[in-house]
Design a protein around this nucleic acid. Structure first.
Length: 219
DNA sequence: ACCCAGGGTCATA
DNA sequence: TATGACCATGGG
């Protein structure tokens, strides 16, 4: 079992997921903050409120009092914290030149810049780097740790950066084309999350089946 | 009535 | 550095 063979198994079973579900790159970035420790169905309601209020840019978010922003994103939970985090992110984003960041920044510079924002940790930053900026990073989340440590491919208690490089180097050693690599990282994370929702959360004996031959998603 | 969700920060020891 | 508390809504 390898990182790439697990990907092929999932892709074969579920097909392409076309993440991230958003209309613009900026919407991806906002969604990445809103979905922290939160079900996506609740994030959708918060984003719908923002759109209805016409608050769809960094400038408009910053022009609004934090309390009003909190009221709009309330369905996403932790709304006081997330209102502050969204504002932190937006002021950083504008200070960096806004939309032109999307093309002009080196991958590592981009990542460290995002991580400098209070409220943007490694996973949220990589959601943005991959799904808004289309750069090749592999996102490590709780599902990824669970599944791949059960398969014996990683150690569950390794640090985020170590695991990220482990996935990236293993997969990029076999996939040489840049666009193909980005596409695989894009689909892979989406498939891992889907598999967790579709199988793991429903199956009390998941730890014994997880993506092995008896797993429904491996058929 | 619990449990968790597409996390991160901060205070404490 | 390593746990724990905290944020807080909505669906199962």
């Amino acid at each position: 079992m390898t990182f790439l063979s697990v990907y092929k198994t999932l892709f074969k079973h579920y097909g392409p997921q076309h993440w991230w579900p958003a209309e613009t790159a900026f919407e991806v970035m906002i969604g990445a903050v809103l979905t922290q420790n939160t079900a996506w169905s609740n994030v959708e309601k918060a984003i719908a409120n923002l759109k209805q209020a016409g608050v769809v840019s960094a400038a408009k978010i910053l022009a609004m009092p934090a309390a009003d922003l909190g009221a709009l994103i309330r369905p996403a939970g932790c709304f006081n914290v997330k209102a502050r985090r969204l504002r932190n992110f937006c002021s950083w984003f504008l200070a960096q030149g806004g939309e032109k960041l999307l093309n002009n920044v080196d991958d590592d510079v981009l990542r460290s810049g995002l991580l400098s924002v209070n409220g943007v940790g490694p996973e949220t930053a990589d959601d943005m780097v991959l799904y808004a900026f289309n750069r090749p990073v592999f996102i490590i989340d709780a599902y990824t740790r669970r599944v791949f440590s059960r398969l014996g491919l990683i150690a569950a208690d390794e640090g985020y950066e170590h695991l990220r490089h482990q996935f990236e180097s293993q997969i990029s050693s076999e996939i040489k084309q840049h666009n193909e690599l980005v596409n695989i990282f894009n689909e892979y994370h989406a498939l891992i999350v889907l598999h967790a929702k579709d199988v793991c959360r429903k199956n009390p004996r998941c730890s014994e089946c997880c993506l092995r031959s008896q797993c429904p998603a491996a058929k």
